[in-house]
């Protein structure tokens, strides 16, 4: 069955009930989400927002209390629905008795890759994540960053149509992070859907095309990254502005800051910044800079969870 969405959830709900007390925790509360094929989607949220439970529901590690999830149009509960998925869990614990090669061989076999293909693919994948020298070493001797990279190789080994990555760059040094980003960019070029669950906002902002912010088990905000962070306003920096001009501009601006003879005014709309510019010109003051400003994802995130 073909679907235009890699992930679709319908009113997905997970309620944890403690065995002895009658306490309920709604970890995921009626989430309906659609992730189009081929996009890079970021799932954000504060600790305890339900991100991990949501991801586990997609992979059937957690059984939803209500609602359903589909992966590429198939019911997520069917094992076959997980065949096109490559997954890297957060806080993964690969058995330390494996070597890098052994681990890749095992998980590739579980994904249905036959023996001949595995022999061919494993060295390629190790080279891709920069671990070709370390394939024969036991995982117990790997650093956190190396484990993360071999984990990514494990997720990629069966050429999945979608990658679900939980904190993919956790514990990885800046060079390794760049390497992981490059690998994921190549995957995106091949049309692989990438679903990232991360708390690193800068990373999600630079990498993801779409984002959903979860808060208290619900989707607090969802949209394209460009739409969420664009259109905030304009910043006008004026040098040596006289006091009467500052007072006049202050009434139009949303905020101002003054430092070293420069006053920065923030305007909400293009009309307002043009009016301000006319005033500055009539007073023969010098414009230092005029720049459109966007919201950072952090600002969007804070606004969404503080609503």
């Amino acid at each position: 069955m073909q679907s235009e969405y890699a992930i679709e959830t319908f009113d997905l709900t997970k309620v944890y009930r403690s065995r002895w007390k009658r306490r309920e925790v709604r970890a995921v509360d009626g989430i309906s989400l659609k992730v189009p094929r081929g996009t890079i989607f970021g799932l954000l949220g504060p600790n305890g927002a339900g991100k991990t439970t949501f991801v586990k529901s997609l992979l059937s590690a957690v059984h939803p209390t209500k609602g359903s999830a589909m992966l590429f149009g198939r019911d997520a509960r069917e094992p076959e629905a997980r065949r096109p998925i490559g997954y890297l869990p957060e806080n993964h614990r690969f058995p330390t008795y494996f070597t890098g090669i052994g681990m890749l061989d095992f998980y590739a076999a579980l994904s249905g890759v036959d023996s001949g293909q595995r022999k061919k693919l494993i060295p390629e994948l190790l080279a891709l994540v920069g671990l070709e020298q370390w394939g024969s070493m036991r995982l117990g001797k790997y650093s956190k960053g190396m484990l993360q990279r071999v984990g990514l190789a494990q997720a990629l080994i069966h050429s999945p149509s979608m990658l679900i990555l939980d904190e993919p760059t956790d514990g990885v040094d800046p060079v390794g992070r760049r390497q992981i980003r490059d690998i994921l960019t190549k995957c995106e070029e091949k049309g692989v859907t990438i679903f990232i669950n991360s708390h690193l906002l800068v990373e999600v902002e630079t990498f993801c095309r779409e984002v959903a912010i979860l808060h208290k088990g619900k989707v607090a905000l969802q949209g394209k990254m460009h739409d969420l962070t664009a259109g905030k306003g304009y910043r006008l920096s004026v040098a040596q502005a006289p006091e009467n001009l500052v007072d006049e501009l202050r009434s139009k601006a949303t905020s101002l800051t003054a430092k070293d003879g420069l006053v920065d005014f923030q305007f909400a709309t293009r009309e307002l910044v043009n009016e301000a510019l006319d005033l500055v010109r009539t007073q023969h003051c010098e414009v230092e800079a005029l720049t459109p400003t966007t919201s950072t994802l952090e600002e969007v995130f804070v606004r969404a969870v503080e609503k």
Binding site: K56, L59, S60, A61, P79, E80, A81, R82, R83, I85, Y87, P89, N91, H92, R93, F94, P95, Y107, L110, S111, G112, Q154, I164
Partner: peptide, 13 residues
């Protein structure tokens, strides 16, 4: 063990 079982269950098995 947490961190191991999730990965096993994510496979088409």
């Amino acid at each position: 063990e947490p961190g191991r079982i999730e990965l096993l269950l994510s496979k088409p098995v």
